[in-house]
């Protein structure tokens, strides 16, 4: 599967079969996530995978956004250890951009591996940190559920490109330049 094919055929998957995901496959997917860019190549991200079914059930209890029963849950964490000043700011956008880039790599790598995945933002941050035994400075940012899709959903409705894409400036509208 080439990159653009992966991007356009990916779907958010929340309904999974009972088929497990191997450690090797999951490791490959997380390696792809870790290859994502980060500000100053800081790589201030930690990934934690959960595959043991009872621990997934416990994570579900702290993450109402996990609707189905995935084979694995990946927790993308901010790594603020050693940060000072603005980098400690919990709303510093760079940290979330870094996590978002890793998320997209992870979603695409899962899809390219024949799996489905979906990001989950609804969880209790501190509760999950306690359950995972995270030290101070490592903060859960996003969860990703992963597993073998039970079915492939239809493509969601997307806004037309002309609604969201403007060239040179917003005021210039959708016209092309005379190059």
């Amino acid at each position: 599967m080439d990159t653009l094919e992966a991007i356009f055929s990916r779907r958010s998957i929340r309904d999974f079969t009972s088929e497990p995901v191997s450690d090797e496959t999951l490791r490959g997917i997380i390696q792809a996530a870790a290859a994502a860019p980060s500000g100053s190549n800081s790589e201030k991200r930690i990934f934690i995978s959960i595959r043991e079914p009872r621990r997934i059930a416990a994570a579900r209890a702290l993450a109402p956004g996990i609707i189905g029963r995935p084979a694995a849950v990946v927790v993308i964490c901010l790594d603020q250890r050693g940060n000072t000043g603005e980098a400690m700011n919990p709303v510093d956008p760079t940290q979330y951009i870094n996590s978002g880039a890793a998320l997209q790599n992870l979603l695409l790598a899962a899809h390219a591996s024949g799996l489905g995945a979906c990001p989950v933002a609804s969880f209790h941050t501190q509760g999950l940190a306690i359950f995972l035994g995270l030290p101070e400075g490592i903060i859960p940012c996003l969860l990703v559920v992963v597993g073998k899709p039970r079915f492939t959903p239809a493509a969601p409705r997307k806004r037309a490109l002309d609604e969201i894409y403007f060239q040179e400036s917003y005021e210039a509208g959708h016209g092309t330049r005379d190059d």
């Binding site: 009872r54 416990a58 702290l62 306690i130 359950f131």
Partner: peptide, 16 residues
């Protein structure tokens, strides 16, 4: 309660 539940979930997971 969420904090207490998280601690209990961890305790039970470690007891397994």
């Amino acid at each position: 309660w969420v904090i207490e539940i998280a601690k209990e979930l961890r305790r039970r997971a470690e007891a397994d």
